[in-house]
């Protein structure tokens, strides 16, 4: 297992564009700390974003994992190209001739995906912990370490998304087209969702939500709900307007199960495709 990771590491680390993208990605994750610096001064009103409760435990786990997850697109480029380049350089053929089995080949890519997701998760955990300790109004240990489900959800979300990218790399074999495919797939899901809601099930009974919850990208998005409406400021504003935003923010086990399911499907399909194809 270590050998497979080492193999992939040599390939990635010696590629300058991958190295820059990976570096940028982790820099961006850390940059969420800069949000704490945001201050406005309108005459007598001093507004500091960090003071609005976004860095309170345990809310910070939710807020940070939701927003930082968007940066995954940077790594998506790295992952798609690390797969597609093997085809365009024909190095996949040489790897297999040199004695890597097809199973090992897919496994080395998947382990890299897991490593990326894991390191991202550790990063977000540490950054959030530090920010929370600096700005949170609550600092009891029991509160700090509550709601850690968002960290787990973050890990699963990244793993599934990167596995999807990996699969697209194998399927399309060209990085630009694979990323284009990803974009088109997102649009397809949106259109399908609209059609299901408007035409097939109607908006009322929740059937549309049930079905769209099984779409790959939608299921990954569903893992971590948007956290803005949970902020006290927004909540009180909504209450004054008479709106009820009472959604359930928690990460549900069945949502995790669907996402894990997709991860397995994508990796298996990558392997099956590789096995079937002549190189």
């Amino acid at each position: 297992m270590v050998r497979l990771l080492q193999i992939e590491f040599i390939k990635l680390w010696n590629n300058r564009s991958s190295r820059i993208l990976i570096f940028t990605y982790f820099l961006l994750i850390t940059s969420i700390a800069l949000v704490s610096m945001i201050k406005f001064d309108f005459g007598d009103i001093h507004f500091q974003l960090a003071g609005q409760g976004i860095f309170n435990f345990p809310y910070i786990w939710h807020f940070n994992t939701y927003f930082v997850a968007w940066f995954k697109l940077f790594l998506a480029i790295v992952i798609v190209s690390m797969m597609a380049n093997e085809y365009s350089n024909k190095t996949i053929k040489q790897n297999l001739i040199d004695g890597l089995s097809k199973k090992e080949f897919v496994l080395s890519k998947f382990l890299t995906v897991i490593a990326f997701a894991l390191i991202s998760t550790i990063f977000i955990f540490v950054v959030s912990l530090i920010l929370g300790l600096l700005y949170s109004d609550f600092n009891e240990v029991s509160i700090i370490f509550s709601d850690l489900e968002f960290i787990l959800a973050f890990f699963l979300k990244l793993t599934a998304f990167f596995s999807f990218c990996l699969f697209l790399g194998v399927l399309v074999k060209r990085s630009a087209f694979a990323l284009g495919f990803l974009f088109i797939w997102q649009i397809v899901e949106i259109i399908a969702t609209v059609v299901l809601e408007q035409k097939v099930f109607g908006t009322k009974n929740g059937m549309a939500d049930l079905v769209t919850g099984f779409f790959p990208l939608r299921s990954m998005y569903n893992l971590i709900d948007e956290p803005i409406t949970r902020l006290n400021v927004i909540k009180s504003a909504a209450k004054q307007l008479g709106a009820d935003l009472g959604s359930n923010y928690h990460v549900h086990w069945y949502e995790m199960l669907i996402v894990i399911g997709w991860t397995i499907i994508f990796i298996y399909l990558s392997y099956a495709l590789l096995k079937k194809r002549d190189l």
Binding site: I10, K11, N14, N15, N89, K90, T91
Partner: peptide
């Protein structure tokens, strides 16, 4: 053809 990683 010889297949290697061109950037390495």
């Amino acid at each position: 053809r010889p297949n290697f990683y061109p950037y390495m």
